[in-house]
Amino acid sequence: MSELPGDLMYTSEHEWLRREDDGSVTIGITDHAQAALGDLVYVELPEIGQVVETGGDMAVVESVKAASDVYAPVAGEVTAVNEALADDPEKINNDPYGDGWIVRLAPSDDDGGLLSPEDYQAILDELDN
């Protein structure tokens, strides 16, 4: 059973999103996603200032057996990236909702289409069956 904080929003692509006080959003991949990928060995981060569309490629997380795109759950401009992942991609494995955050965006769009923790849990339950 993977952990699922109640104060975050989710996507069907197994990403999470947290609205910060300054209006920005922080994005990472869920505990389920990191477990499915296995030990991460590399994270390809976007450039700061890059503008992304909703659903567009934003970053890549890579394990020895898989590489997976991280899509932008909302449109916006990249304002920060988690530089620490360059040397320690395993931070995502160890702490997916905390130290393992990936990108911060200044959103330019509303965030319709995001999932509540309950809705995302339902997706995970389906996968288990």
Partner: peptide, 9 residues
């Protein structure tokens, strides 16, 4: 190593 760059993955 670095096989995730390759076509089979």
């Amino acid at each position: 190593t670095l096989q995730a760059r390759e076509q089979h993955i």
